[in-house]
């Protein structure tokens, strides 16, 4: 599923945020098979490296049906920037992690903050956008121009 999206958008370099070894291995395999270069950001220029990558793949902790939102709980800003800097963001979402309404997420947010202390949680609802000029909507400003949510697992 990943490879066709990336290939059709001419993606050459990809970076992966934190995810379980099992999923990571699967993702890596399909990327290597599609001839993608996987970038591992390290050192003092992490942000610059990430900024030059074509696509970022992240794992969502949960999603919200009402608003079409994916939620990412991060304790490391490399993961946050993986969905913030590249032009294309692919978000993996396990099917049974979808809530109905935005307001239902309160207890998940609370427990994430309680468990991890320092954290950055992002609720992401589509590509970055602005209507600042003449109130006309344009997609793609500072964040991704495209967001793809790929679901997996059983409903």
């Amino acid at each position: 599923m990943l490879a066709p999206i990336l290939t059709s958008e001419n993606v050459q370099t990809v970076t992966l945020a934190k995810m379980s070894m099992e999923i990571r291995d699967k993702v890596r395999k399909s990327l290597i098979h599609a001839n993608m270069q996987i970038v591992e950001p390290k050192g003092i220029n992490i942000s610059r490296t990430l900024s030059e990558v074509d696509a970022g793949i992240t794992l969502s902790n949960f999603a919200i049906a009402e608003t079409g939102t994916v939620a990412e709980i991060c304790h490391q800003d490399v993961d946050r920037l993986t969905s913030a800097l590249p032009r294309i963001h692919i978000c993996l979402l396990q099917c049974d992690q979808i809530l109905g309404a935005l307001t239902e997420s309160a207890s998940l947010l609370r427990s994430a903050v309680k468990t991890y202390g320092k954290s950055a949680i992002s609720l992401i609802s589509g590509p970055s956008r602005t209507a600042d000029v003449e109130l006309k909507l344009v997609l793609g400003v500072h964040g991704p121009h495209q967001v793809h949510v790929v679901t997996y697992g059983e409903e």
Binding site: L102, L109, S125, G126, P127
Partner: peptide, 8 residues
């Protein structure tokens, strides 16, 4: 329905 990015 919601702002595109809501960061906590």
């Amino acid at each position: 329905r919601t702002t595109t990015y809501v960061s906590f």
